[in-house]
Simulated assay, not measured.
Amino acid sequence: VTFMFEKQGVIIIEKEDTDEDQLMEDALEAGATDFLTDEEDIFEIRTEPNDVGVIRDELGEKGYNIISSEAAYIPSTYTRLESQDDMKKMAKMIEMFEENDDVQNIYHNWENEDEYEED
């Protein structure tokens, strides 16, 4: 199912005490392809997969607090699960994959994962 995902570099930077406009300018100058601010406490910068290390290092040298950086598979489309039963099944499946020693990474397109409430 890799056709449903696009490999991109993802750099996560802490928002606290960070000037958003300056970070956006610095990231784009360094070669970033996208800048996302949807989250409350982080900025997410997207790059070409092979550029993530260079851009991370350049932003780190400028003093930004980098939480993580990696090449990841980003979904082309997202699926919203409406029923708690479907959410429970999806959460259980993800948990089973996480517990499997043979599984290195899990990528999914579950849009509203944060709305799931465990029983």
Rank of each mutant, 00 (worst) to 15 (best):
N112P: 10
E115F: 00
S69E: 11
E115D: 14
N50R: 12
M93N: 04
L59D: 04
E61S: 12
L81G: 01
I74M: 11
D19L: 05
V54R: 13
T47F: 03
S68M: 12
D17A: 12
D38Y: 06
M4E: 10
E95Y: 02
M87V: 03
T33D: 12
I11E: 11
T37N: 10
E39C: 00
E113A: 15
T37G: 08
I13W: 02
K62M: 12
E99N: 14
F97T: 03
I94R: 06
E98I: 00
D85H: 11
V10F: 01
K92F: 04
K88S: 12
Q104L: 11
I94D: 02
E20G: 13
E40P: 05
Y73N: 08
D57S: 11
E40W: 02
F97N: 04
R46Q: 14
N50H: 10
E6A: 14
E44P: 00
D41S: 09
S83E: 13
N50W: 07
D102G: 02
A71E: 14
D17W: 01
E115V: 01
F97P: 00
Y116H: 07
E40G: 01
S69F: 13
E61D: 13
M4I: 00
K62P: 02
M24P: 00
N112S: 05
E20A: 15
K7I: 12
F3R: 10
E6T: 15
L81M: 15
F35R: 10
M93K: 05
Y116Q: 00
K15C: 06
E99Q: 15
K62Y: 01
E29H: 05
N112F: 09
D85G: 01
Q84S: 11
E111L: 14
N50M: 09
F3S: 14
S69C: 03
I106M: 01
E44K: 13
E111P: 00
I67P: 02
D114S: 02
E70W: 04
N65M: 04
H108N: 11
Q22Y: 09
G9S: 06
I42L: 04
D101R: 07
T79R: 07
I13V: 15
D86N: 15
D101Q: 09
I45L: 02
E25G: 07
I42N: 09
E48V: 06
L59C: 07
M90K: 08
I66C: 02
D19I: 05
G31L: 04
E25K: 09
E20N: 09
D102I: 02
Q8K: 15
F3L: 08
M87L: 15
S76Q: 15
F43E: 10
K15F: 06
A72P: 00
E70R: 11
L23A: 04
G63L: 04
T2F: 03
N109P: 03
M24H: 14
D38R: 08
F97S: 06
Y78R: 11
E99A: 12
A32K: 02
I13M: 00
T79W: 04
E117H: 05
T18M: 07
Y107C: 04
Y78Q: 13
I74G: 02
M4W: 01
